[in-house]
């Protein structure tokens, strides 16, 4: 798995998405969710922290091997209260990964729990053929 952008993870802080070419249409900030990615014998698993996102507000698309995760957050403002002190910002989440072609793209599973996205990307049966070279 390779990634499109270089990301530096800062301890304790959300990393904001840096606009490259196209600007976002939503005025809210967008953050890069932190992920764990690990590989098992038959699958690749991706876990992403997206607090404020539930199963209805997450969008996962796969186009030409590029997996894009979008999480939309509706900021909650308690009625009758005003913000007195802020340490973190609320916004959407956005991150893309380039998948290697050996992922079985039809059987990707996703679930969302407590603001964490779990993606299961099963590996496809190898389709490449090895050609044996014979000595003459």
């Amino acid at each position: 798995m390779a990634e499109e952008k270089n990301i530096q993870v800062q301890e304790g802080q959300k990393q904001e998405v840096v606009e490259s070419e196209a600007e976002r249409t939503r005025a809210k900030p967008a953050f890069i969710p932190r992920v764990d990615i690990y590989e098992t014998n038959d699958a690749v698993a991706l876990i992403a922290d997206m607090p404020g996102v539930d199963e209805n507000s997450v969008d996962i698309t796969l186009e030409k091997n590029v997996l894009t995760i979008n999480g939309y957050v509706e900021p909650e403002r308690p009625e009758g209260y005003s913000l007195a002190y802020a340490e973190y910002r609320v916004g959407d989440y956005q991150r893309s990964f380039t998948l290697s072609s050996e992922i079985d793209q039809e059987n990707i599973e996703a679930k969302m729990k407590d603001g964490v996205l779990h993606l299961h990307l099963p590996k496809a049966e190898p389709t490449t053929k090895k050609i044996a070279v014979q000595s003459a």
């Binding site: 304790g12 802080q13 005003s82 913000l83 007195a84 002190y85 802020a86 340490e87 973190y88």
Partner: peptide, 18 residues
Amino acid sequence: ASEAEAGVTTGYPAMNVW
């Protein structure tokens, strides 16, 4: 406080206070 200028975190978890 302004949410737009948040970012100085003093511990985990970061907290917002209304």
